[in-house]
């Protein structure tokens, strides 16, 4: 197994058995995918880091607020 390269919660490494690149989430302890080249693996990590899914607009509102 090649040396793992790490960025925050994410790791990539080359699976020597087939030469593909693996993206691994160390927090979720989950393999996120296997890619034919390193650039695609890095794109995948960038995609996960950028994840906009939970970017729903949220704005300040005081449920229990009061003006006094």
């Amino acid at each position: 197994m090649a040396e793992r390269e790490k960025c925050g919660d994410f790791e990539i490494y080359k699976d020597e058995s087939d030469g593909w690149w693996v993206v691994y989430d160390t927090k979720k302890k989950k393999r996120l995918g296997k890619f034919i080249d390193k650039n695609s693996a890095l794109d995948k990590v960038a995609f996960f880091i950028q994840d906009e899914k939970s970017d729903e607009e949220e704005s300040e509102y005081e449920e229990t607020g009061s003006v006094c």
């Binding site: 790490k6 960025c7 925050g8 919660d9 890095l42 996960f48 880091i49 939970s54």
Partner: peptide, 16 residues
């Protein structure tokens, strides 16, 4: 917590 990346710019850029 979406601070799931390396906060050190040198490390971050090296990785990518």
């Amino acid at each position: 917590n979406k601070i799931n990346y390396s906060l050190d710019l040198n490390q971050f850029v090296d990785f990518f």
